[in-house]
Amino acid sequence: MDSHDPVRTAEPRPGVLLVTLNRPHVRNAIDRALAHAMDTALTRLEEDPCLDVGILTGAGGHFCSGMDLKAFPAEGVPLVADRGLAGLTRARGRKPLIAAVEGAAVAGGFELALACDLITAADTAFFALPEVARGLIAAEGGAIRLPGRIPYHVAMEMLLTAAPLTAPDAARYGLVNHLTPQGEALEAALTLAERIQTHSRDAVHITKQIVQDTRGLDDHTAYTVQNPLSTPVFTTTNATEGATAFTEKRPPAWHR
């Protein structure tokens, strides 16, 4: 893969796909080329049976500064089909995706992180949604997701005043799973990926789907949606293996 490609992929450990946004000269701002390259990488994550977990990070000490405003007048918003910004913000991937954030995660870059399932961040990182200052809207998940992830009034201050949120404050509000020293967010993400990989793949996938499909529903409706997804899991080979391994006090040997 060319070092100048807008997105680089690697497999730092078996079953883990590392997707690195690679436009460090513009803090990994998203233009159309990067968006399509990232969509290709996420499609690979979903379709390759040997891959279990994805990690999204940025090159050059920053996660992502959002949409490339210089490219915007000519290219428009870099959406990919019905999958949203860079093929992620409106997608419904089965496999867990972890954001490893160093430096700035701003505007669309923050929306990419919000679309991930877990977030690790360096204690020097920061998040912001400054769209209103540019005459724009945080329309790729910022205005929808953020008020449900942190206290409402904190989210509204970010959305309406463009105020940034430091990673330590984001961790205090529960938005960041693991706060690390500068330069160590990726290692923390790899540790989370390894922990996910020790569990049954089908149980992980169905758990994520249930969360996606039932958010915002009342309990009765949520169970109605969940039951057809969860009930078959209890009759799988892996369910039997999990129970047997627990009884025999040994690690499970999952069927892949």
Rank of each mutant, 00 (worst) to 15 (best):
G216Y: 02
L112R: 03
G93E: 02
D39C: 06
P181R: 11
F72G: 01
A115F: 01
P130C: 03
S65W: 11
E131N: 15
V204M: 15
A243D: 05
H255D: 14
A71P: 05
N238K: 04
V204R: 14
L136S: 14
T161M: 09
Q197A: 07
A155D: 03
A113D: 00
L179C: 02
S200D: 15
H178A: 02
P12A: 05
L79P: 05
T198E: 13
H62A: 11
M156N: 09
G135S: 04
A74Y: 11
E47G: 09
V106Y: 00
V16W: 01
A59W: 07
D2N: 15
L160T: 15
E187K: 14
L69W: 08
E140L: 05
G15E: 04
R215W: 10
P168Q: 04
E248D: 14
V101H: 04
A155R: 00
A170W: 00
P24E: 03
L21F: 13
A167I: 01
G108Y: 04
T191M: 12
G174W: 10
V211L: 13
F110A: 13
R215I: 11
L175G: 00
G183D: 06
D52P: 03
R92L: 09
D48H: 10
A91F: 02
R149M: 14
L175P: 01
W254G: 03
A99Y: 02
T166N: 04
I210V: 15
T191I: 14
P164V: 02
A91V: 07
V204K: 07
V132N: 10
A125G: 06
P73E: 07
V101P: 03
A138R: 05
A203S: 12
D48E: 14
H199M: 12
I150V: 09
A33V: 01
D219P: 08
T166S: 15
F127N: 01
I206A: 10
L217P: 09
A33Q: 05
V26H: 09
T240E: 08
L112M: 10
